[in-house]
């Protein structure tokens, strides 16, 4: 498979940005300055980025409570995201949504979501818009292994097939929903679930950008070409607790360390780039340095940014009232 230098650089940059963003939040959260719940996407970067590499502004995604990575992959500005997480007026949602509700509809980002299983039905609607408005767009639902057990998700698989929608269902399977393993909570297999609804199924190692990129290309082009929905099952691991503060006693000692040392999507990307001379290490180093600065600046700016004002409380409940 040929991937342009431009896509490679942008994808690496997006993955590095997500990693840096999340690692930094992990540190900042521990200081107690960040309000609310924060769920980190560390270790899962290649999934969001490998999928979104095939999407443009006219395509739509819906995300989850673990949404920072999807937002960055779809192009949401990190300074606005950081400010949002800090509850600032300059945040992408003016400090009214926080980590779990980052959205930018102008970029086709239909929102992170506090409700597990909230996204897949919305994506059926977005896919319907793409279909009826004939903009050639596709709609992609990211959801977890845990969310795959929500009635809303299973109903959406059916609806998308019945309506023959340009929708892709991306199951980000990190093996856990909160503190419960998917081996306990998920009956059958995702593959059989796709087959049960008559849609094509693709799967890949979600820590390998190239594998995700290829599998996503197939799933998305299937949907975009008018053949109906597809499912993409991405195998992942999460590197931190369900949310910040989770001690993870349900995971065997060393599980995360092993994931970090053996299945780091950024290390793997660099390896592959070097092996087949795709991108020079110096280019990647420059990206790393630039990203670090960008995140530093975003944190500094977020901490200094103005708080929302009293009038914001009652603003934007309706368009008109």
């Amino acid at each position: 498979m040929q991937i342009s230098r431009d896509i490679l650089t942008r994808s690496y940059q997006a993955m590095r940005t997500i990693r840096e963003f999340e690692e930094r939040l992990h540190v900042e959260f521990a200081t107690g300055e960040i309000p609310g719940f924060v769920h980190l996407y560390c270790g899962e970067e290649a999934s969001g980025v490998g999928v979104c590499a095939h999407l443009g502004k006219t395509d739509t995604i819906a995300s989850t409570h673990r949404g920072h990575g999807h937002c960055i992959a779809k192009g949401v500005a990190v300074d606005g995201m950081m400010a949002e997480i800090y509850g600032r007026r300059t945040g992408v949602c003016r400090g009214k949504g926080g980590s779990m509700h980052i959205a930018d509809l102008s970029l086709g980002m239909l929102g992170a979501n506090g409700i597990v299983g909230g996204g897949p039905p919305l994506i059926c609607g977005a896919a319907l818009s793409h279909k009826l408005l004939k903009d050639n767009g596709v709609a992609v639902a990211f959801y977890g292994d845990g969310a795959s057990n929500e009635g809303s998700t299973l109903e959406s698989l059916n609806l998308a097939t019945v309506w023959h929608l340009p929708a892709v269902f991306v199951v980000e399977d990190n093996g856990y929903g909160e503190a419960t393993g998917s081996s306990y909570a998920c009956a059958g297999t995702q593959k059989d679930r796709a087959a049960g609804f008559g849609m094509p199924y693709f799967e890949c190692d979600g820590t390998d950008f190239f594998a995700v990129y290829e599998a996503a290309e197939e799933a998305i082009s299937h949907a975009r070409s008018g053949k109906g929905p597809a499912m993409l099952h991405v195998h992942l691991a999460r590197w931190y607790g369900h949310f910040e503060g989770d001690a993870m006693s349900y995971r065997v000692n060393g599980e995360v360390t092993k994931e970090r040392s053996e299945r780091d999507c950024l290390v793997k990307f660099r390896q592959r780039a070097a092996d087949v001379s795709l991108l020079e290490a110096s280019v990647l180093d420059e990206i790393d340095a630039a990203v670090k600065n960008e995140i530093d600046a975003a944190v500094v700016a977020a901490k200094k940014a103005p708080l929302p004002e009293a009038e914001d409380l009652t603003r934007d409940v309706y368009v008109s009232y």
Binding site: T180, G181, Y184, Y250, V252
Partner: peptide
């Protein structure tokens, strides 16, 4: 959901 937790986890 997770009234106990840990089922299906790797640590047992």
């Amino acid at each position: 959901e997770d009234v106990a937790g840990g089922r299906g986890g790797t640590s047992g």
